[in-house]
Design a protein around this nucleic acid. Structure first.
Length: 925
RNA sequence: GGGCGAUUAGCUCAGUCGGCUAGAGCGCUACGUUGACAUCGUAGAGGUCACUGGUUCAAGUCCAGUAUCGCCCA
């Protein structure tokens, strides 16, 4: 190992990725002597590359797993990927068409699925490499895929059991139909876009009367499927018509005029609504309420079907045009208005979805949902931040049955076989003695539905030909099993025994309903327990304008461009420091050309992480250089200098804060606390103060021991967030100080990855030392401030006279070398009642006055002005404090501690005002 | 339509149990490369805490309302 020279993230990343891989440090196996800490990764889609959201979530999970590993838990993080049924199939189909002008029907199911697998292999590999580049510490030997053999078995068994328990049923439902992909899409796969359309006002003649009912619609072509018109039950205009019929124009069907207070808003339009239950969700609900006929007028590809009469075969847009023309010809169109409305679009094909009545498979949710809600209500599953528990509970409380079928070829094919033309006796005979086949009657279609753990042959039941349901399951069905399927369920594996339930699920907000709720449900059903004890919901990263990062907006930031430009540690640190408890965080995006002319999106925010990494690296480099000749040994408390005691005090408190912040998922606190300690305390003060001690053979020994111990702890605290640079430093430190630590040294672990997490040492925490150090810092700051204000040449030194109480003076004199060094001071003196030197600038502190004689530099008028301004400020504050203290309410009601503090503050202020007044008088004399 | 979040320095964000003279980083200004670090150091400027009311001895913080932006679920 070469000594630290320059922070080169790329070289450092390569070096330690290799070491960790070879050492198999991230592989886990059940160890009864340790407690497990387990995370299953939210499997990324094999559809595309990882984005910044993945990087954030990956980083946070890795922070937790590395932290717990160091704390001595048997830490296991299972990685994997999701087959993402519809998204992946859509991408491959699109490519097939672009490159070969073929559709899936041209090449057939088998060939399409073969191609998707090939595509998946390629992308899965890329995802794994991307994760590794981020430095995450998954157990790579346990990589899982939602469509691999083990996971397929879990899906099959779960489906079988649920079917057997009559939790899964087949039914007709209005679904969002993607007319391009010929499949139902879930609600969450539909986005709404504003579309400029029209509002057609159409007259429907009332049967047996010359009255006309004017209805308004944005989709005139759906009138072909109308089965009622509705008015509000309290709308006086139409009361007399309720119960009568209208004659549906163009079709001639007589349909009833009904009253429906839920569907109709009497204020909107004409107060009359046409009802098309098979093609509109609100109308569908109305249809159910009023037991209306449901007429489907569409083919799966969106063309009008035989129920559309002469319009049969027309595409949606053409049908609309033709219907309107026909209505106009009959003089039934009253008027056409421009109208902007929201239209649902399929996220996959980007085409408008059709509400469409079709046969689907469902899971009955009521009881399952109830149990899943209890798990969160009873805090067996804790959601962080806690407000998201409401999202979870309110979604589940709707108990909407879950549509689990998708009309796709890529996915877990539904294990249902149709058996037409046979009796239950035939089935009983065919499967006698077998408990791996169950069946239900499908009366509507005069057939039996068979569910089997093993695939069934066409001729498995004599006298009939079995036909398998061609549909596949919603991807979330297999994802919902992920926490236990990754551990080998349905087998009763030692992994399940040891690691399950898992510890943490870290994910995004929109996943609460899609996935978290469903995992809780499935875990309860399959395992009889919760899947994880904690759920952490991370914020969403938006661009600098508060817009979500989207491919279509071109504002996405690729984590691998960031790793390339700034390094993985820099990216990780920045993301951690952004992870607050709010919902959204902004990352201003900047476009930039990189080598090769490629344009990337980047952000200057990552400089925070890069700069911090470099700072740490350089501090370590300095420390290690100065550890030359290090001799390990115990450190006695009375050998310690003020700066040693102070940095150990600060280290102990920092260790406690960081540990607590990690346990509370307050990641930004973790980042900030480490930053402040390392930069503003260790680097800015401790290192600066100890520097001279290394030049003295005698004082060097203790300084080296403390420095090595503090650096050692810093590296360990930093490691979960910045694994690479911390390992780099750890290894270099190991070369010069293999055994280190205060008060007694011990041999350091070979890699920081498995080194023990630091513990706070309360015996080091000392308020007196903290106060003394603060005085020392204040005096130094006063002098630096004066030097700055009077632009004293940085190369020349100044003299300092302090007028302070006996205790302070003694302390400052003891530590005058530090003051001289850090404030570039020549002569230093301090005593009680020291008089102000002539031509001196002054700063007044609560316990002392600091004078800096500046014969050549001082501008008496300017100094007088400054002091008068200070006096005004001090008096203003004093007035405020006096107001408080003379307020009877404050003195009697505020806690004694707060009142005392204000009294002490008043004393300080009075003293300072006196001191400044004295200075002003002297300047005026 | 229901729910949630945000609004604090030019920008991005902290601010725990109400005790604040409201902090940090970036940016800005001045000075500085003496052996860790210019991806740096020292010093400095910069704020009516969105608005209106209320509770309280005390409000950036708690309550109610308003405005703007955003997210989730319909």
């Amino acid at each position: 190992m070469t000594p630290l020279t320059q922070n080169d993230p790329k070289a450092i990343q390569d070096r330690w990725t290799k070491l960790w891989d070879e050492g198999k440090h991230f592989q886990s196996a059940p160890d009864p002597s340790k407690k497990p800490y387990t995370i299953v990764i939210p499997p990324p889609n094999v559809t595309g590359a990882l984005h910044l959201g993945h990087a954030l979530n990956g980083t946070l999970q890795d922070v937790m797993i590395r932290f717990k590993r160091m704390q001595g838990f048997e830490a296991l993080w299972i990685p994997g990927a999701d087959h993402a049924g519809i998204a992946t199939q859509a991408v491959v189909e699109k490519r097939l068409f672009e490159q070969e002008k073929l559709t899936r029907h041209d090449i057939g199911r088998e060939e399409l699925v073969r191609r998707i697998w090939a595509w998946k292999d390629e992308h899965e590999d890329r995802i794994m490499r991307q994760l590794k580049a981020m430095g995450v510490s998954c157990d790579w030997s346990r990589w899982s895929f939602t469509l691999d053999e083990t996971r397929a078995r879990a899906v099959r068994v779960t489906f079988f059991n649920m079917f057997r328990d009559q939790l899964i049923y087949r039914g007709k439902r209005l679904v969002n139909w993607d007319v391009q992909l010929h499949t139902a899409v879930a609600d969450d796969e539909v986005y709404h876009d504003e579309v400029k359309g029209h509002l057609w006002h159409i007259n429907y003649p009332v049967e047996g009367s010359d009255r006309l009912l004017e209805v308004a619609t944005t989709r005139p072509e759906t009138m072909l499927g109308d089965t009622a018109v509705a008015v509000h039950p309290k709308d006086e205009r139409y009361l007399d018509l309720i119960g009568m019929n209208v004659v549906l124009p163009l079709v001639g069907r007589k349909i009833p005029i009904i009253a429906d207070g839920q569907l109709v808003n009497p204020e909107f339009g004409t107060g009359v609504v046409k009802v098309t239950p098979a093609h509109d969700p609100n109308d569908y609900a109305c249809g159910l309420r009023n037991k209306l006929e449901m007429i489907n007028i569409l083919e799966p590809d969106g063309r009008i079907n035989e129920n559309g009469g002469k319009f049969q075969g027309l595409k949606r847009e053409q049908a609309r045009k033709s219907v309107v023309e026909a209505l106009e010809a009959e003089g039934l169109v009253v008027k056409v208005e421009d109208h902007v409305h929201q239209v649902g679009h399929s996220d996959r094909s980007k085409t408008a979805v059709e509400p469409y009545l079709s046969d689907q498979w469902f899971i009955q949710m009521d009881e399952l949902a109830e149990k899943a809600m209890a798990a969160v209500r009873e805090q067996r599953v804790k959601i962080h931040p806690p407000r998201y528990a409401d999202t979870y509970l309110s979604w589940l409380s709707e108990k909407r049955d879950w549509c689990i079928s998708r009309q796709l070829w890529w996915g877990h094919q539904i294990p249902i076989w149709y058996a037409p033309n046979c009796s239950e006796v035939d089935l009983e005979k065919a499967f006698a003695g077998r408990d791996d086949v169950v069946w239900q009657e499908d009366k509507e279609n005069d057939r039996w539905l068979l569910c089997s753990l093993e695939d069934l042959a066409e001729n498995a039941v004599p006298g009939t030909t079995l036909q398998r349901d061609p549909d596949v399951l919603d991807t979330w069905f297999s994802s919902a099993l992920w926490p236990h399927s990754t551990m080998g369920w349905p087998d009763h594996t030692p992994d399940l025994e040891y690691y399950y339930p898992t510890s943490l699920l870290s994910t995004a907000r929109e996943i609460i309903t899609l996935w978290v709720a469903r995992m809780v449900i499935m875990s309860d059903y399959n395992m009889g327990t919760i899947p994880f004890s904690d759920v952490y919901i991370h914020p969403v990263i938006q661009d600098g304008n508060g817009m979500p990062m989207k491919k279509s907006l071109g504002n996405g930031v690729d984590p691998f461009d960031i790793i390339e430009k700034y390094g993985a540690d820099a990216m990780r640190y920045t993301l951690v420091s952004m992870a607050t408890e709010t919902q959204d965080v902004r990352l201003p995006v900047k476009k930039e050309k990189v080598d090769g002319g490629r344009q990337i999106n980047t952000s200057e925010k990552f400089e925070i992480g890069r700069n911090f990494g470099t700072k740490i690296f350089n501090a370590a480099k300095f420390s290690i250089l100065n550890l030359e000749g290090f001799i390990a040994g115990p450190v006695d408390e009375d050998e310690l200098m003020i700066e040693d005691r102070w940095i150990l005090d600060r280290l102990s408190r920092t260790t406690r804060s960081v540990t607590e912040a990690l346990d509370g998922y307050r990641f930004n606190d973790v980042g900030r606390t480490l930053y402040d300690f390392v930069w503003s305390e260790f680097c800015d003060w401790y290192i600066e103060i100890v520097k001279p001690r290394f030049r003295d053979e005698k004082s060097k020994v203790t300084a080296q021991r403390v420095l090595a111990a503090v650096l050692d702890a810093i590296v360990r605290l930093l490691h979960p967030v910045m694994p690479f640079v911390s390992e780099e430093i750890w290894q270099a430190l190991g070369e010069v100080a293999p055994s280190r630590g205060v008060p007694t040294p011990s041999t350091a672990n070979a890699v920081v990855t498995t080194a023990p997490w630091p513990k706070p040492l309360p015996s080091w925490e000392n308020d007196t030392i903290a106060a003394q150090m603060s005085l020392l810092q204040d005096v130094i700051r006063c002098v630096r401030n004066i030097r700055g204000e009077f632009t004293v040449d940085p190369k020349s030194s100044v003299d300092v006279v302090v007028d302070g109480d006996a205790e302070s003076s003694a302390f400052l004199l003891t530590n005058q070398e530090t003051i001289k060094l850090l404030a570039k001071v020549g002569n230093f003196s301090s005593e009680s009642n020291a008089s102000r030197p002539a031509m001196a600038a002054a700063h007044v502190l609560p316990t002392c006055k600091v004078y800096v004689p500046l014969a050549d530099h001082i501008d008496l008028d300017a100094e007088l002005g400054k002091q008068e301004k200070k006096k005004t400020d001090l008096e203003k504050r004093l007035k405020g404090v006096d107001a408080k203290l003379s307020n009877e309410g404050f003195v009697s009601r505020a806690p004694a501690e707060v009142v005392d503090q204000q009294r002490r503050l008043r004393d300080d202020l009075v003293r300072q005002v006196e001191a400044v007044t004295a200075i002003i008088n002297e300047l005026n004399a």
